[in-house]
Design a protein around this nucleic acid. Structure first.
Lengths: 198, 198
DNA sequence: GCGGTTATGATGCAAGTGCATCAGAAAAGG
DNA sequence: CCTTTTCTGATGCACTTGCATCATAACCGC
């Protein structure tokens, strides 16, 4: 039996390289050569992992989608010390808004993919699915808050989730566009969550 | 005196072509040749109008920034039949969210520029300025609503303006990403404006 | 007309693109 | 050892890119 290679690991490594490149210099700066250099593999290796460039981008998007979702989910599951539903909600949303320094790259990448969704049906499908999951997550958190009496029953969880997600994404846009600093965005988000309570 | 040409008009024509291309197939599909073809001028003409490609993109961004701002401002100024501050606010925001069919292209273009702002300081500057204007506009509208007693005095106009803008932009993102249809987004926006009244 | 100025668009060019190809390296079984 | 099979990375290729060049065309005051 001949040489065997862990393709999954390499794919991940390449996906990370793609994200780093997008974050650093935008999506149109992503070429197979640059990706290979960034991932410190040869171009041939990249081509072996992904049949086409689009496949590669798609995988990278799936990768960061998964990372974002997972991070939010863990934040909830790993709540050892039981927190109030309100803080859980606001922390989760702050995470989803990708405001902190170390998520900045992911925010760039995410936005880059959104803005290219109209030109690629496959990208659009992944985005749609991820947004669906995030919506369900936020809606669930609101329901939870209603169960603990922190959030008024009269509110429609699904509708409020849409608004909350929109606020989070809008703030991401504002930060990337330089219209707001992350701290101000964080405050706006917090204020809006607070307005749901009471 | 030799041939004279209306450069301003041609620049606008080219800017429109750039926007059409971005909307149709994304920002990395914008090449000087394609722009020239779309604008139905020769490549030489494009090069004469803009020293570099970046200059061209910058002009295109300024163009649509101006269009969006102007449209919102006109909506307000041209209110012959005096409307309630509330409907004025919600209509203006619906316009800013670029939800209707004919603004869809502008939404794509806007988002494309935002996602490239990190790689170009000049683009970022234009975006920042435009966002500043839009914020002031929305804040003014809220103040106006407070003057007419439609919006509670206790609300901080500047803060609510940030949130409203974020909701609008977030919904734009959601529509482009295919997570919501324009009608649903419109409803979310309307609901959030309503929550400010009362 | 004519001269002088400006605009035009075809062409050239070097660099970069995604993808295909293929001689050879590497590894594991015989 | 050698064979067999997988993997590698350099190279080639056709194409596109942004930008520079320049002979020619278009124009207007004279």
């Amino acid at each position: 039996m001949p040489k065997q290679v862990d393709y999954e690991e390499r794919r991940l490594r390449i996906a990370e390289a793609v994200c780093a490149l997008i974050a650093r210099s935008g999506m149109e700066a992503v070429s197979l050569r640059d990706v290979a250099a960034e991932a410190e593999v040869s171009m041939g290796a990249v081509q072996r992992c992904f049949r086409t460039k689009e496949d590669m981008l798609l995988f990278a998007l799936e990768h960061i989608s998964q990372r974002v979702s997972e991070r939010a989910n863990q934040r909830i599951a790993a709540t050892s010390t039981p927190q109030s539903a309100a803080t859980l909600l606001s922390h989760t949303l702050a995470e989803l808004a990708l405001l902190d320094e170390e998520s900045r790259d992911q925010a760039h990448v995410w936005l880059a993919f959104v803005s290219h969704a109209p030109s690629s049906e496959r990208l659009a499908a992944v985005l749609q699915e991820t947004y669906g999951k995030l919506h369900d997550l936020v809606a669930w958190l609101i329901h939870y808050g209603q169960d603990t009496q922190e959030i008024p029953q009269r509110l429609d969880a699904a509708q409020e989730a849409q608004t909350l997600l929109a606020v989070a994404d809008g703030l991401t846009v504002h930060v990337i566009a330089g219209h707001q600093c992350p701290e101000a965005a964080s405050a706006v988000l917090q204020r809006h969550v607070d307005s749901l309570l009471r």
